[in-house]
Amino acid sequence: MIFAQLLINSLITGAIYALVASGFSIIYSVCKFVHFAHGAVITVAGYFLYFLYVRLGFNFYFAASLTVLFASLLGASLNLTIYKKLRTKKSSSAILLLASVGLLIFLESFALLLMGADVKTLNFIPVSKGLKILGAVITPLQVVVILASLIVLVLTYVLMKQTKLGKAMRAVADNKDLAEIVGVSAEKIYNWSFLLGSSIAGIAGILVSLEHNLEPTMGTSLMIKGFAAAVIGGMDSVAGSILGAFLLGFLENLGGWFFPSAYKEAIAFAALLTFLLFRPHGILGSKS
């Protein structure tokens, strides 16, 4: 019974991490740099939804759709206004990483400035009595989080494998120079990867603000987890990063069973360091 509860909790944690990690990993594998500001896109998306739904009183589903669109455009505009400029100056991916950390701090501070530091709640699906499955308790909200996350992950997989755009993204991820040679514009595909990755960040933002509360720094802590998950699974493999996310969710909940909950944050870093030391390319990533 405790084990069933552990599994369900891991699934909930993993589902959120998987959304964070998959969007991040799509952008990383296509554009070949670490876009930490991905976390800020999640935060800003959460506040955007809060603003539309709570402050302006929009219909929730309409507000949520606008939020996904907004997140997607926000990510793409970061790419066009900041990253693209740096790339045309032939900046290294280390410079892009530094810029992304700067953007993360800037955007989260901006959210703090506009919305204040107090914790916000959406309260769309009020916390209700849990359902019992095999002796484990799960709330309807958590069921929604898991299902939504799984649907998004499956749709992303289909998009990457079956559509022309998905194949082009994988081609650019595989060999950018060769993609240019067959007439695929890498810059255009970079932009598509930001649109797609950031729309997933928007969905993550919605689910996180439903399941937890909104705080200006939530993107940073989610990004740390998402990054750890991506490294564990293999940074350049989207499937690997999803696997890493569920593994990390499981490890955190398993650890919570043995250690005081304050150690929960340490588990992600312990796993990250272990993988960096012993299997730096992750579970499914390529070695080069």
Binding site: K164, K167, A168, R170, A171, A173, D174, N175, L178, A179, V182, V184, S286
Partner: peptide, 13 residues
């Protein structure tokens, strides 16, 4: 060649 893509996907590219 795009090493991770299938033969067919390479041709489609």
């Amino acid at each position: 060649v795009f090493s991770q893509l299938t033969v067919l996907e390479n041709l489609e590219m």
